[in-house]
Design a protein around this nucleic acid. Structure first.
Lengths: 234, 234
DNA sequence: CCGCTTCATTGCGTTATCGCAAATACTGAA
DNA sequence: TTCAGTATTTGCGATAACGCAATGAAGCGG
């Protein structure tokens, strides 16, 4: 078994404020794991045997409805925790997590979570802060879904993706992982058709450039105006 | 200053597992407060100077959008925490809380939250569990809003209200606080008109009885079938 | 390099839901 | 008891968004 290096996790929000010794202790029980693109890190309703930190790649968190529809709850970027069912008092995962690209994660046995949290209060605090942040994010999303029409919701979603995973290119800010019209639809509660029409219209207006599983926002500012609803809805 | 009695909070989930002495310590810094119907317990974006437990009455938690629309995030029933901005790492309240009926709350200075949480880990855990539960609730709501059409969303909302605040009457389960069509609309992201039409249709079918600011679910089972979408949508 | 699969586009008809407006019903206070 | 203020109902027209279906483009595996 190859020893994991402390530098992997130093500086991550989840471990902020912990001593070097603590990091080593924590790392000692972690195992690193490669997750191939399009495979699951964990599955909804399965026993929450592990919790994870994403070190590299992108992960999509998805909820499946009884009738087979999907909703994308959020995207995870490197440095973020995922599968922390324990921290919210669950024994099963409330959603599935799918690797959007090839990924590397650190995994810990789920039962260690409580141990860590009590032995290293800072770690507990940090995860709770994550949970709190996500609560706010999701509540914002509810407000959007309740009050905004589709065009603005999709605009907001794109802006969030760009903020989280935007890579600067010649043309603008590229969302730097593969994302389909269907994916965007599942994030915003609409259909791939509507998303496609919107992107086409926006491309026409010069706000974005989009292709197969790829979106670049060329004029974030104008897109933001549109998202905020104070504009040009022709 | 009248001393608060331990019996007020014994048995509440937030204080579960704490010793009698601890309860007394905690109570020593609490002040009890009466909140008149239709007044605010706290206001969105205000400094989070206090956190609360609702002892009696009902509170509506509302988010206001920049353009003046409202969304009802949740209803609080006695025994529940509210205004726990500290626990999610915020210094301002992310929403407003309005008394739906005359209420009694216990209030603590916000800065005490962190003290309590460290001095009495059980208390911290309990609030975090609350935050976790709410995260799941809200995520469920996002999934509903993304995948279900209005009729099912409203049905789900009513069932939740009945479950949380249903009082058995001759006719069925009465939501035991005043709730308008507008309120239900703001919970489900629709309009009071649509809610009114739905309630009328359901009354026709014998599922509910509704009046001014009042709803009784007479056939919860059939309403649930409708909410789950396996039915009679004529 | 070819064929297959997946993804995206777009026209067109359908429909759920909205938004307005007018009428009606209920409640609490004077 | 009456009046004023709110809440509710309901008809009707408008429309945002869906859903289908057909076509076209892009990428992947052999």
């Amino acid at each position: 078994m190859n020893k994991l290096d402390r530098s992997l996790i130093v500086g991550l929000p989840a471990f902020e404020g912990l001593t070097a010794e603590t990091l080593d202790v924590v790392l000692a029980s972690a195992r690193s794991q490669r997750i191939e693109k399009d495979t699951a890190v964990f599955e909804q309703d399965a026993e929450a045997n592990s919790f994870f930190i994403l070190l590299d790649g992108r992960v999509r968190v998805v909820k499946l409805t009884p009738d087979g529809q999907q909703v994308i709850v959020r995207y995870i970027v490197p440095g973020e925790l995922l599968g922390i069912a324990q921290a919210i008092g669950r024994s099963t995962y409330p959603a599935s997590a799918i690797a959007v690209t090839d990924c590397v994660v650190l995994a810990w046995p789920g039962k260690l979570w409580a141990e860590f949290a009590t032995a290293h209060p800072g770690f507990g605090m940090n995860t709770y802060k994550t949970v709190g942040t996500r609560l706010q994010d999701v509540q914002t999303q509810v407000v959007e879904m309740a009050t905004e029409q589709v065009e603005r919701r999709v605009a907001h979603a794109l802006l969030r993706l760009v903020q989280q995973s935007g890579r600067k290119t010649d043309e603008g800010l590229l969302i730097d992982f593969p994302i389909s019209r269907q994916d965007i639809a599942e994030m915003t509660g609409t259909t791939l058709h509507t998303v496609s029409r919107l992107l086409s219209a926006w491309e026409e207006k010069g706000l974005v450039i989009s292709g197969r599983q790829q979106v670049t926002v060329t004029q974030p500012h104008r897109l933001m105006l549109l998202a905020e609803g104070r504009v040009e809805r022709d």
